[in-house]
Amino acid sequence: MNLSILFSEQYRKIARDGLWDNNVVLTQNLALCPLLAVTGTATNGLGMGLATMVVMVASNAAVSVSRHLIPSEIRIPIFVLLIAALVTLVDIFLNAWMHELHKVLGLFIPLIVTNCVILGRAEAFASKQPVMPSMWDGLMMGVGFTAAMVVLGAMREISSAGTLFANASVLLGESFRFLETTLIPEYKGFLLMALPPGGFIMLGFMVALKRLLDRKAVAKSTEPSVIDAIVLEEGA
């Protein structure tokens, strides 16, 4: 891809939507089942986020390539079939090359098929756009989802165990060993944060913080500048 394309207005808007404005978790409040189930640690959140991101990019590309060949009457079943095939490949890959992570994520890998975000982006975007914007949309939505998973997992892991990216080398491979950190030695732990209710609490804080930042940004953008104030004062 020509790097100059990535700085075009269309691609910047897609990136902004995926990472912040239309974030899968913080704005759309979707994919909460895997989000709360596997984000007991940042490592699990990273693994699940990356698996979902790969499926999103590949499914958007597949749908975009075949969009003129698929009859509109049966497009949804075909989209689901494409996504299911890609999820099966990811599931086999994780089982073969990252078996420990596969055991931790368990049933939630096949359940990526039912993730309404993936089907939603295929229907709302990829089925109407060329391949490169569709892949970029899948990548940015996936990165935004992964970031939310990692942040939530990190917050829960620190508060529940005092560690960060525990067992990263075991689940993701030796190349991820540098991520393993003990932030609070001899920490007794806070069990609530390791359980789904703790995930709801942390997610609530994250959503509230995003909305607070959005409101401040809107308020700041609507405030009259100093120059405008001077002009108005002189005009009066």
Rank of each mutant, 00 (worst) to 15 (best):
P71S: 14
S72L: 07
E73I: 05
I74G: 09
I76K: 13
I76P: 04
P77F: 05
P77Y: 09
I78A: 05
I78H: 04
L82C: 12
L86P: 01
V87M: 11
D91Y: 14
I92K: 11
F93K: 01
F93G: 10
L94R: 00
L94N: 14
A96T: 13
A96M: 13
M98C: 12
L101I: 02
L101V: 08
L101F: 06
H102Q: 14
L105Y: 10
G106E: 09
L107H: 02
F108Q: 11
I109T: 13
P110G: 06
P110D: 03
L111V: 09
I112C: 09
I112L: 12
I112S: 11
I112M: 12
T114Q: 05
T114H: 04
V117M: 12
G120A: 01
A124C: 03
F125Q: 03
A126E: 05
S127K: 04
K128H: 14
Q129K: 13
V131F: 06
V131S: 00
V131G: 02
V131L: 15
P133A: 04
M140Q: 10
M141S: 15
G142Q: 06
G144E: 10
G144V: 05
G144F: 08
F145C: 09
V150C: 10
V151P: 02
V151K: 00
G153T: 04
A154P: 07
A154C: 05
R156P: 07
R156W: 09
R156T: 10
I158P: 07
I158A: 08
S159C: 13
S160G: 06
S160Q: 02
S160R: 02
G162L: 08
G162C: 11
T163Q: 05
T163E: 11
F165E: 04
A166G: 14
N167Y: 11
A168Q: 00
S169R: 12
V170H: 10
V170E: 12
F176H: 03
F176P: 05
F178G: 00
F178C: 04
T181M: 13
T181R: 13
T181Q: 14
L183C: 08
I184M: 07
I184W: 13
I184Y: 11
P185N: 01
P185Q: 07
E186F: 09
E186P: 01
G189A: 02
G189P: 04
F190R: 05
L192V: 07
A194M: 11
